[in-house]
Design a protein around this nucleic acid. Sequence first.
DNA 1: ACAAGCGGGACTACCCGTTGTT
DNA 2: AACAACGGGTAGTCCCGCTTGT
Lengths: 204, 204, 204, 204
Amino acid sequence: MPRDGTETRTLIMDAAQELILQHGFAGTSVDAILERVSLTKGAFFHHFRSKGELAQALIERFAAADEAVLRSALERSERLTRDPVQRLLLFVSLLEEQAAALIEPYPGCLFASFCHEAQLFDEDVHGVIRAGFEHWQAEVSARVRAAMAHRPPRLEVSPDDVAAMLTAVVEGAFILSRSLNDAALLARQLRHYRNYLELLFGDP
Amino acid sequence: MPRDGTETRTLIMDAAQELILQHGFAGTSVDAILERVSLTKGAFFHHFRSKGELAQALIERFAAADEAVLRSALERSERLTRDPVQRLLLFVSLLEEQAAALIEPYPGCLFASFCHEAQLFDEDVHGVIRAGFEHWQAEVSARVRAAMAHRPPRLEVSPDDVAAMLTAVVEGAFILSRSLNDAALLARQLRHYRNYLELLFGDP
Amino acid sequence: MPRDGTETRTLIMDAAQELILQHGFAGTSVDAILERVSLTKGAFFHHFRSKGELAQALIERFAAADEAVLRSALERSERLTRDPVQRLLLFVSLLEEQAAALIEPYPGCLFASFCHEAQLFDEDVHGVIRAGFEHWQAEVSARVRAAMAHRPPRLEVSPDDVAAMLTAVVEGAFILSRSLNDAALLARQLRHYRNYLELLFGDP
Amino acid sequence: MPRDGTETRTLIMDAAQELILQHGFAGTSVDAILERVSLTKGAFFHHFRSKGELAQALIERFAAADEAVLRSALERSERLTRDPVQRLLLFVSLLEEQAAALIEPYPGCLFASFCHEAQLFDEDVHGVIRAGFEHWQAEVSARVRAAMAHRPPRLEVSPDDVAAMLTAVVEGAFILSRSLNDAALLARQLRHYRNYLELLFGDP
DNA sequence: ACAAGCGGGACTACCCGTTGTT
DNA sequence: AACAACGGGTAGTCCCGCTTGT
């Protein structure tokens, strides 16, 4: 095996993410991360110039994975049906399906985690988070708009806000599921979000 | 008021809460809190045996205030109308009204904050948070059930989950509003939650 | 004894100065200082917010002591004779007398020490050093000018440069005395500086 | 020149010397040196067994260059005149000429620098420094003695001390010139040293 | 000859909490 | 009730130098 640091770097990031989701960023020491992966400070600071740079690397990776989930669900929903309203509902159902699978490892959203310690991070980090949220909102909003164009909703609503509600429900569900120790809570909440859309676009 | 320590204790707790909502608990040092209120260690450890005890005092105070908000909105909604469905919708509207007033200083939920650093706190603290969430859920669930008894909903739903969705939307909205720097987001999301209830119990 | 930190602070500074003159600033760890005085990190960072602040405190104290030496020698020389040329020569002789006493503890100039690690310090520190040098130069230069007015020198010279030479000789002598392990070198060099002045203002 | 390591070695040493003159030896990390020359640890430890060995190599190189300056000035002064007093004065004038050329990059003496962090180096390093100082002193002292033999000085002086004064003035001038940001200071101080010699050997 | 990965330890800075004093 | 001094430990950062690979 050619001495490849990428593996070690990934190892560190995986351990870091898991710990951060449980203890928060400030509550997760570099030592604690390294103990998990049996490495030393030397290795850590070879890969990351500072703990802040680790944070940067982590949200960037998380944002990429998050976007992949969004894109996959969007693309599948568009392949499976042509009706804009059905597409939207199916999209949420696909997310719900994924959420039902989330039990182990302990779930959590790095975006939310970092937001709750906002002052610890620089503008770069917050930029990535904001971009992540805005990307979901923009993509979902476009599908809501398409559905509205296809069938007028029962109530007058802003597509942007309807889209934002998806993110809000997901983030809120994460918190509740952890506190109430109820892993299925997220999926059930997504079902209610789908209910809302169904009622909004349903026959009068 | 006699020169007693209650004042100082409150001063410390206020400063602590504000800082914790911005930096997280682990990211907020006792020294940082004390610098804000121009006090020294002696004062702090006179009022709190440890930093953990401060956390305990903070969520207890927060939970009490949170419950007051819930109780007030419930009571007012019950005074203003007799119809169970209207009561429920009015209840959400009253919360929305309050949310619209929240602009400065920037709000946040201590429950969510502590949940994101879960491993830092003992079972006592988590008990208070869980009780807080469950209390909302129980009270709101009861009103949803009453509404369902009064008028069958368009879709078959669990009252508990409908109630939980309120909390989820609120917590999620807090995160989004902070990241997107949009103070009015919470109120708009509550409006959508009310929309959902309205559609659920609306005429077919 | 009332819990007085001034004593501890002085203790730390004394140990720090001694070590810095031997190892340089970067080469002197806070731990090494504290070991000397049997204190812990807690004590150190209670008195100094950073190692840099210690540096600041050290040169300020050193500059004050340095100025006291200058002032004392000047005042004594002015009390002992009226002739401007004699005053100048006597002034140097008084310094020479003091230098001869410098054997233990190991001598050295904090100004020079810090200059040799210039980039480690901020502008405040360098300001104090520069002010120290300029103060000597200004005071001595004034006496040289008075001597020149009283008796024209054999060679045309700038009083500022003649004054600067005193500082240069002293600083250079410190370096040599350390490398050559010759404690009396400084006094002998001051004698040569006095020779120069004597010849400059001597009878043709 | 074939692509050999001598070039890299010199590159490292040049960067190291420049940094050390600004930050001191302890304040200059191997990494900082390597960043300057865009190399990595592998290169450094290929050429030097340790950081201490770099120090050794640096003063040896510096001492050689220093001696070359001395020899050159001595030889030129001896070629240009036969009178021992004139030779001595001319020798200082030649140094002054060289000093006047020193403006950019800002100079410094590695001997003095290392002396201010004396305890960091082993006896080998100090031996080289001491030898450097003693060599100047011996050579200059011999010329002073020759001048004294040729023309008795106005004051009774030790040739060794007169010779040492040259080094002292130079070293002191370096410190002052850096603190006062006056590149021409060294040349002016050499002029005063020459004045001293001139007066010492001048006609009564 | 040089690059990269990494170990192990030292550094400054800061943490929480205790003690003595007023 | 509150302050200043301080202990003891840990945090993040950087250090030097060794090893492995090209």
